[in-house]
Write a protein that binds this DNA or RNA. Structure first.
Lengths: 131, 131
DNA sequence: CTGAATCCGATGCGATACTG
DNA sequence: CAGTATCGCATCGGATTCAG
């Protein structure tokens, strides 16, 4: 089927729009991880949702699925592709803007919690070291 | 109810994640527009969806709703707030990345159409003039 | 330990028709 | 012309269960 995007933003959201995808990318940016590691690193995610979103990211070329064959229990590892690292700047910008927004809202009396800062995304590629 | 975000990216997606919101912001970045104008500027959007997403953007402080009182048929106009303009850089980055992605996919034999480039977002604030 | 299968509720988006 | 109300559908994310 032929896709039509209004603009590049839609195309980007197709890739990172999933609820947990930014977190997954963030963790894999530091080092390759196995599914068990990811589940522990991302509290609240379920088995299905994790594998669903991992599959999406694989199909979009953001991560690689690597089967380690010479191990006793067959192990599976996921790692960011070089294409995946190109998302670093975008995620960084989005994370920073979102943090400022949360800060604003909380000043206006709302009670919003932000579990992780943007430092995680700075690990990707050169990691444009923003304060 | 208390909200909890994993990271800033989620908070940002809450604001611009709607299917048409980037387009709406893009058009309002150039000049204030009335609903009829927006419907004509955004082919495919329906009345309901447009007003739904406009209301969301108002509640999030991205746009202002201005009722022009001294006109024969009561007119309503929408304009970007200064807070809304702060989204400029983020949308720009996302649009550029998405455009490159579409280009890559089309080179791989897919047939994806991209209606608008990132130029529209350059109108926001200083409009960090990227090529 | 990895991950596939099934069921299900919430929600976003859309079509249509109606009010001021 | 601006906005609302109702209905419907598709998609996403989540709980649970089963298999290699």
């Amino acid at each position: 089927m032929k896709k039509v995007y209004q603009n590049g933003v839609e195309a980007t959201l197709d890739v990172i729009g999933g609820k947990w995808k930014p977190m997954i990318i963030c963790h894999l940016a530091v080092q390759p991880l196995r599914t068990g590691d990811l589940r522990r690193a991302i509290p609240g995610i379920t088995q299905k949702v994790l594998t669903d979103q991992l599959r999406d990211l694989i199909n979009d070329g953001i991560i690689n699925r690597i089967v380690l064959v010479n191990t006793a229990p067959c192990k599976v590892e996921y790692q960011l592709t070089s294409y995946g690292t190109s998302l670093g700047d975008v995620l960084m910008q989005m994370s920073i803007w979102g943090e400022q927004r949360v800060a604003n809202l909380n000043q206006d009396g709302q009670d919003i919690q932000l579990l992780n800062g943007h430092e995680g995304f700075s690990k990707i590629q050169g990691g444009s070291s923003v304060s």
